[in-house]
Design a protein around this nucleic acid. Sequence first.
DNA 1: CTCCACTGGGTACGTTGTACGCGGTTATGC
DNA 2: GCATAACCGCGTACAACGTACCCAGTGGAG
Lengths: 241, 241
Amino acid sequence: MTDAEYVNIWMRPERPARGPKPIYSRAQITEAAVRIADAEGLEAATMRRIAAEIGAGAMSLYRYVPSRDNLVELMADRLMGEIDVTGMPSGDWRADLTRYADGLRAMWLRHPWIATVQRSLPSFGPNQLLLIERLMGVLDAFVSIDENLGLVAMLNSYVESSAREEISSAREVRRSGLSESEWMARSYPYVDRLVKSGEYPIFTKIVMEARQPHLSREDQFRYGLQRVLDCIAAALPAEHH
Amino acid sequence: MTDAEYVNIWMRPERPARGPKPIYSRAQITEAAVRIADAEGLEAATMRRIAAEIGAGAMSLYRYVPSRDNLVELMADRLMGEIDVTGMPSGDWRADLTRYADGLRAMWLRHPWIATVQRSLPSFGPNQLLLIERLMGVLDAFVSIDENLGLVAMLNSYVESSAREEISSAREVRRSGLSESEWMARSYPYVDRLVKSGEYPIFTKIVMEARQPHLSREDQFRYGLQRVLDCIAAALPAEHH
DNA sequence: CTCCACTGGGTACGTTGTACGCGGTTATGC
DNA sequence: GCATAACCGCGTACAACGTACCCAGTGGAG
């Protein structure tokens, strides 16, 4: 069987039968790559850099992984494994989904580079499969598979988009060394110019509002999450609200 | 004023005062880059390729644009300009938001590479600013700026995530040459193996469901959109439902 | 007129993913 | 036990990338 016949990573066996024992492993390589990406961004996790991290030659990695894109798939699935879904469904769907959403958000914030990987199609790694089983099991008894998919997608997109925002704002704040409220009106001459031009009243309201003290990001997230869960509740049979 | 002082693209003037007339323009370069990205993906829009497209030398582009990243920002803002928000707010918030959502979705499907650009912070180009004014104007009279931002984010994240899904599915279908329903269970030995293993009952239900005939993607989108708009309605003062 | 800020663009450098091939190692078939 | 084929780690090499630097030419300001 040639390499081309493995349509995705998860089909390709890690260890062959014959030949010398491999020194490294997919898990070790993936781990190193995640470590680098966490610290310096996904684009810093080059093949050479990852190899150096584990003390290997650059080309050795290709004995374990067919391409960098595939390695990124491995990394993404490793991240899915960080989301704790043990004991789901527990019988309390609202608690289950809250725990999942918190876990997903925390994972995104630990590994912000995940925002830059776009899955061509969900690659169905082992961790993602487990997640699907447990997570969709939560509403499986109440709604059709179709509706379940829609509701879960709604929840995911809320968590991901709010994490995206938090990530990019955190990066900008770190880069500029200013607090978020200072950032907009004071240290950004462009925004200042727009505000002073008077042509953008609503944009100006947003900027002014950003100067006020606000809920913490965490509280903001939880508030929005409750609203999303309310929407989900509205889609369930009345006896399960 | 040195280049470094222009904190973003929109501050940097396109045309200087003195010297020979430039042959090209930012708009022309951006247009060419968008054309290439539409046809072959964002990664195909390299500086050399864009330059060749308009008959320029590669390095000439840097007279108009400080870096490729900045050019991508220009491209993204150009896309925002495709979303028609004239006449908003019209007084019928539901119609306005529906029109916006349709426009956003259509734009994403015309330019699927937009899914791969992650804005570090919203870069507030002229088209995006106009969009903000018109779009947030729709609910501005009914809710606070904070709530408005949250609701608009909710709408955006729904449209974007459903567009993301549609894009990646379309790409996979195009690559394999199979219809979507065939794709999963028949032409994907990995999925088949997972189903046959019996360890993933819910995943299997999803696969089986995918074989059934379904609503078109368009209808699916509109159905989900109505649900999102219902959630928005629930957040408005009762007299505006 | 003289300047000199600007133009388009050629050359070159550092970095990337990875194809290829080498010499050594090991499980398998005889 | 031994030849063989499959596999190991990895050095070298290449094409493609973004872009720094430099140059000769150009045209408005003084």
